[in-house]
């Protein structure tokens, strides 16, 4: 799976979970940039990413994700590493 495919899938998840049909994911994007991204929707988003890509994040990975770019890097490593 290439980076563009991963980004598109993550974008679809974000649009659905954060109820933002126009949302475009950017590597530097954080929860501060998305209205409905809070502690509860964050859990839903993570669960959805795990379901769609078929893996579980490790705790240490989850607590080091500072922005969307960090998450895309982890997904990329899991899918292609």
């Amino acid at each position: 799976m290439n980076t563009e495919e991963i980004t598109n899938k993550v974008q679809d998840i974000f649009r659905e979970v954060f109820q933002a049909p126009e949302l475009m994911v950017r590597p530097e994007m954080t929860a501060n940039d998305v209205d409905k991204w809070d502690s509860l929707t964050h859990l839903t988003m993570i669960a959805k990413v795990e379901e769609v890509f078929g893996f579980r994040f490790k705790l240490k990975e989850m607590v080091k994700m500072k922005n969307v770019g960090d998450m895309l890097t982890i997904i990329n490593e899991k899918m292609n590493g």
């Binding site: 929860a31 859990l43 607590v63």
Partner: peptide, 11 residues
């Protein structure tokens, strides 16, 4: 760079 609620949610 990680909010407390993100760390808490992960745990």
């Amino acid at each position: 760079g990680v909010s407390s609620w993100m760390a808490r949610s992960a745990l």
